[in-house]
Amino acid sequence: MFIYLLKRVSLGLVIVVFAVTLLFCMIHLVPGDPARILLGPRATPEMIAHLSAQMGLDQPMAMQILKFFGNLLRGDLGMDVITNRPVAEIVFGQLPYTLWLIGSAIVGAMLIGIPLGCYSALHRNTWFDRFSGIISVACITAPAFVVALYSLLIFAVWLKWFPAVGAGEPGDFFDQISHLVLPAIAIGISWVGYLSRLVRASMLEVMGENHIRTARAYGLPENTVVYQYALKLAVLPTVTVIGVGMGFLLSAALFTEIVFSRPGIGKLIFDSITTRNYPVVMGSVLVSTIIFVISTAVSDLINAWLDPRIRNSL
């Protein structure tokens, strides 16, 4: 297990290096000089040259990448060109909001979706199974921003159950939670449907396998068969999907944060792109990428912990 952990973490690091390099190239190969765009049409050539030098844009590409990595290792993501604050400080200030949002969305979706899928699989073709199938598919097909807009309209504007915008007063836990409910539902609801369908399918597959027949042939109690013998195998694909799904959740969070005017990485990316604040774009996309890489690595590690066969496969 320890060897697997080492291998998986180093693989994760390699992925981060590749992703960052690619990201860096993509931003720099886009036509147009960032310094010129940033300063606007009335900038003089001297001003552009000055800003380019300040941002290090006058140096060769390879040099820029190396320098970026060097700064990255020291935790320096560059300076915000507008407020002149360190990008790292801005990004890490916004990060907890987004992590809370996607974290509560996915945990909520797991708590509802996984038992729902299990129950459907074990009571296959009953009215409950069919009903939960319809609801699940309906949940999957609802885009996050649509759910966000309607929930905002219904629960915040008409019913006034939950606040509409912002993230709540800092330090006031309950205020923050009440601000979290609607956005978390908006991005989590499709995952309830998705997870319940996925768990149902893999549960049905596992319940048909020979070793489950063996467990039954030994008269093991049904709860042991389902929750210890079958579920451990049935959640494996789900864990992988959740790991990859963090990427989708990050992009869903972007829309939701805009709709609810919540602070967060998504809102930060949106604002910095509209103001052409290129170091902030770079920094926040980088942090999102790292979150994505970490979440896939964690899901792989969980699977390796659950399934001994995976430990030997990397």
Partner: peptide
């Protein structure tokens, strides 16, 4: 009653040994 017999008074060995045991336990 059936459950109490299975694995106690009667038990079974299945055909394909590679798939009769639970792979994750």
């Amino acid at each position: 009653k059936l459950k109490s017999l299975r694995g106690q008074r009667m038990s079974i060995v299945f055909q394909d040994p590679m798939s009769t045991l639970n792979p994750v336990l």
